[in-house]
């Protein structure tokens, strides 16, 4: 079983990768980071063993590129002499609607630390399994579950304040 033609690889995974990036870095930058991801994938593609889990592999690259962008943004941020902004308060936690609108919720996710942010976006934007999330993050399945759990916990702590 050989590697599929790269175009087929893109056709199969491109939509999901872009959805992950739209969640992780926001819709404005998602296209650019997708391009960087796919070009990096194209460069490395011929070196891959034919048995590679291509889905986990491409998300590993995408996550790295997303982290790069987050770091670049953090470096560009103007330092201010105030405490870090708390996660926005979401009304109605635990009692049902109203729930936060999409932009607000993903903004909160984007402010999580890198591992938790990746776990939450991979789980909810593209429905990767805990094992696959572990592969992408380079950690055990258990550690991936913990990151996801912690991330959700932090998001909930931002509710109802």
């Amino acid at each position: 079983m050989a590697l599929p033609p790269f175009q087929r690889f893109v056709d199969r995974h491109g939509v999901a990768v872009r959805r992950f990036l739209a969640a992780s870095v926001g819709p404005t930058d998602a296209d650019d980071v997708l391009q960087e991801t796919m070009i990096a994938a194209l460069r490395a593609y011929p070196t891959l063993p034919a048995s590679t889990d291509l889905r986990a592999w491409v998300f590993t690259i995408a996550n790295r590129k997303a982290i790069d962008l987050h770091r670049a943004r953090a470096r560009r941020a103007v330092p201010v002499a105030t405490v870090p902004e708390p996660l926005p308060a979401f009304a109605g936690a635990g009692t049902g609607p109203p729930v936060p609108e999409e932009p607000e919720l993903w903004s909160a996710v984007r402010r999580l630390p890198p591992k938790m942010r990746a776990a939450v976006t991979l789980r909810f934007a593209v429905e990767l399994s805990h094992a696959e999330i572990g592969t992408v993050l380079g950690c055990s399945e258990e550690a991936a579950r913990r990151s996801l759990h912690e991330g959700l916990k932090r998001l909930r702590e931002g509710w109802d304040r």
Partner: peptide, 28 residues
């Protein structure tokens, strides 16, 4: 409710312009 909200939010993530991205990718 948070997990439900996250799943709903995922569904509303914008869709890509695959054709345009493909052309740019080929050129790059």
């Amino acid at each position: 409710p948070l997990e439900t909200a996250l799943r709903d939010a995922a569904r509303s993530l914008p869709v890509a312009d695959a054709a345009g991205a493909g052309r740019r990718r080929a050129r790059r």
